[in-house]
Each structure stands twice: as C-alpha cells, then as structure tokens.
Design a protein around this nucleic acid. Structure first.
Length: 415
RNA sequence: UGUCCGAUGGUGUAACGGUAGCACAAGGCCCUUUGGAGGCCUUUGUCAUGGUUCGAAUCCAUGUCGGACAGCCA
C-alpha cells in the first residue's frame, strides 16, 4: 500500500529554497517545518518514501554552539560525511541494511565527481551476560548501578582496562571471532579464555590470601624465619625467583580448610597433610575454637625435611595451598568482580536494570605477601591458585592498596 | 501484515561444486610443589523437501524457523 503524499510535496524548488533559508535563520519553532527528499511514496522500502533530511531543533551543539538550529538526520549525514572523508567501505551493523537504498539514492542524486562509498552491514558483537548498547550502558551509569563509565564491571574500554584486561587480549578476542551477517551471541567463556591466555604468560605470581584463617606451626619458634624461594613466572623462558619467608604464624585461605571434608578434598583437613607452596608439608593437629565455637586457629606441625633441598623435598601430597606469613603480611582491599548480569541476554529485556547481578562486586580485606607493597597499575599479578589481580588505577595508593580481580583461574574442582 | 536479511556441533566460525575443519565449551586420560598451565584422546553439526550434477554446506525452487525495520533516534 503506497504512503500518503505530504500536502507540500509539489512545492517548487524556489519556494523550498526560500523556506530552507528561513528555517536555517531560526524563523520557525521546533517541528514547524522540515525538509524531505522527494523520492517515491509508493516504494516498498519505507525509507524511500520521502524521508526526512533536516529538522529544526533549537538546541546548542557541543562543537558548533548555537550557530545552527537545523540538524540533519543520520541517513543524510552518514552518506555525505563518508563521501567527504573519502571512505570506500562504510561498515555498520545489520539494522542499517534497510537504509542502504537511501544511502545509495542520496549519493547517486548529487552527481558527485569522485567514486562513491558503499555501505556494508555486519552483525554486532553480542557477548553473553553483557550489554553493549551505549544507551543502555548510559542508564546503568545514570541510575548508579555501577560506579561510572570506567567501573571495572563495564564492558567499556576504560572499564575493561581498569579491570586489568590487557589491550592485546581484547584485540585477540575480536580477531578470533570472525565476522558474519547473522545475529549471534558469543559466550563469555571465549573472552575469558583469551584473557587468561594473555595473563598466564605475562603475569608474575604472588601469594595472597583473600579470606584468611590463622595457622600456628607449633614446631617453629616465635620470631623464627625460614627463607623460601618462590618462582615469579613459571611460563617464563628463564624463570626468576624471589624470597618468601615462613614464620610460626601464617594465614591460609579459609576455603583451603574443611573440618568435615567432602569426598576428594585435597586440602587441609583434620589429621591431614598439605604442602604450603614453596615451603614444606604441614599436618593439622588441633583445631582451636573460641567460647562461641568459632574457629580461631589451626595448630599444625611443619615437616621441615620436606623443604626444597631437604631429603624429603620430593614427598608427594595431594594438595598444595598458598599462604602468607602472618607477621609480614600487608593489608589490601580486594574487589572481586563477577558478571554484571544474571541472564545471558540482558539486552533482550527492557527491564535490564533489574537483571543486574547483586553479587557482581564483593569486597574483602585480604593479606598479601610484602613484595606487593609497592605495586601500582597497570601491573598485573597472578595471585596463586586464585586468579589475576591488578591495582586499581584510580584508588590504589601505597598507603591503602586496592586490587581488582581481573578474572579467576579456571577451577576444575568447582565443577 | 509489508519490505529486507539470515540459517554449518552446546557456542562462535571455516570449507574454487570435490576428505565437513578450527577455536571455545563439555567429557576422559597423563603430568603437576597452582585442583593453574601443559600434553594426549573423545563426543556432538550442514533447517526441511525436491531439483541440477559423476559429485551439493555451496547452485536452483518451495517450505520452515529466526532476526531487523515501519522515530522529526542513531
């Protein structure tokens, strides 16, 4: 069914030019006049039915100020600016396929001397559990669902970088995807794999405990220090080491202890043995509780013959866990990020604000090995057995360290 | 409803008309002072029905399913 002609469709060119000058001069209020291309009101493609080119908007422009009250519509500006800039291939997303005939018509009607640009449309990169629409991202910022455009949970470049994701990983991810013309949803696992691959090779290892529980090594004297050598990066061609010091009191991860262990639990349990990484094997002798029944410390015996270079250093135990010296550890706030949304396709719902993951940020007070005291962004570290972490570029200072978790390590046990 | 676009394992993608491959995911095994990393192996696919052809994921027809658009937004 053809469209209905505008009552002004057959106005003369001279009359239109005069009106256009008056529109430009600011003679009319918003919406009182407009300028259309005269194409074909019977065209099956709706965008060819005399589309609007200019409309009046009395609002200042962020570059041009108040000089203009006339603004072109996207379709008109797009093809022309491509031509002005000498673009040959103008790449955009699928929703503009219907507009291509108008893009071509406008350029073709102008008798232009140079070769005309062509528009090519491809599917946008839709990532699971993520939004990429700028308009929707804006609402997350405006309604304080995140702490700003560079919140480490945001899929903006500034957010990804603050999260600690290397630029190289972002490029590699995009290069791995390929480009097509049908709508797709890329699983976040693909992005996460690229990030881990990049960070695994470049990040130095450090020891850090996010949720500490205290261990007392009863056969070490108070003040006694055993120096151990820790590998900085086992992926390196020629790995270097640093010293970490074992003392009578250390912190381990509370997740690495189970009073009632599930089947196949390799970590510390009553009567069980684990290796403190780079140090020695310890055996749990006694669980100390306060009057309320809460566990206050675990008393263990260290087998010093299992240290590196000692006769039993090759002794095998199922579990190896990370630790920090309680006397030497430094404090840091660590922000644990998770996916921002609870569903794979938050963009499919108008109600996406209610789909924000309430657990997308958890903050803990962690204990770090002392070598991290001088760390600053953009350094990235692997906290052994936990994941990759980077000092927050905005808020971390030597006096008050703040780390962002970029991503966890793969965890075969969690499955 | 109209116009347009698309359809290959769970996901994302390759394959002049000529062996359906790669990555992620999943599963199994080996190794391991990170339940990490690494190594080896495995499962799963051409939307359907016809046609053309010696031969079709690819070309043609019809159908099915999915998506975009129908703003004085971009």
């Amino acid at each position: 069914m053809p469209g209905r002609d505008s009552p002004f469709r057959n106005r003369s060119a001279a009359e239109n030019l005069d009106l256009f000058r008056r529109m430009k001069a600011g003679e009319f209020p918003n919406g009182a006049r407009s300028l259309r291309a005269k194409i074909d009101m019977a065209a099956p493609n709706l965008w060819l039915r005399d589309p609007l080119l200019y409309r009046i908007r009395h609002v200042p422009h962020h570059h041009a100020g108040a000089a203009w009250c006339l603004y072109p519509l996207y379709d008109y500006a797009h093809c022309l600016s491509d031509y002005f800039e000498g673009i040959t291939h103008s790449i955009c997303t699928l929703e503009f396929v219907d507009h291509r005939p108008l893009y071509d018509w406008l350029l073709g009607s102008l008798d232009l001397p140079r070769a005309l640009p062509h528009q090519y449309e491809f599917a946008k990169l839709t990532l699971g559990y993520t939004l990429v629409s700028k308009r929707k991202l804006l609402r997350l910022v405006q309604e304080n669902k995140v702490a700003g455009w560079d919140d480490p949970r945001m899929p903006t470049l500034s957010g990804l970088r603050r999260r600690g994701i290397p630029a190289h990983a972002i490029r590699q991810f995009v290069a791995n995807l390929g480009v097509t013309k049908h709508d797709s949803l890329t699983e976040v696992a693909v992005f996460e794999h690229t990030i881990r691959e990049a960070l695994n090779h470049s990040s130095e290892r450090r020891l850090a405990v996010l949720k500490p529980i205290k261990i007392v090594l009863t056969n070490l004297a108070p003040g006694e220090v055993l120096v151990c050598q820790a590998t900085n990066n086992p992926q390196s061609e020629s790995p270097t080491t640093r010293a970490v010091e074992l003392t009578r009191e250390v912190f381990i991860e509370s997740d690495d202890f189970a009073e009632v262990p599930p089947p196949k639990y390799f970590r510390l349990k009553p009567g069980g043995e684990v290796r403190l990484k780079y140090a020695c094997i310890i055996k749990l002798d006694e669980i100390v509780q306060d009057s309320a029944g809460a566990i206050t410390e675990l008393r263990c015996t260290a087998d010093l013959t299992t240290r590196n270079g000692q006769p039993n250093c090759d002794k095998k135990v199922k579990g190896t866990i990370h630790w920090v010296s309680a006397e030497q550890a430094i404090d840091a706030e660590v922000r644990l990020y998770d996916r921002l949304f609870t569903v794979p396709e938050p963009g499919a719902s108008e109600d996406f604000l209610s789909l924000v993951n309430p657990h997308s940020l958890e903050t803990v007070q962690a204990k770090l090995e002392p070598s991290l005291a001088a760390s600053a962004a953009p350094a990235c570290y692997q906290f052994e057995r936990l994941g990759y972490f980077t000092p927050d570029a905005k808020e971390s200072t030597p006096a008050r360290l703040v780390f962002n978790r970029t991503i966890t390590l793969r965890d075969a046990w969690a499955k």
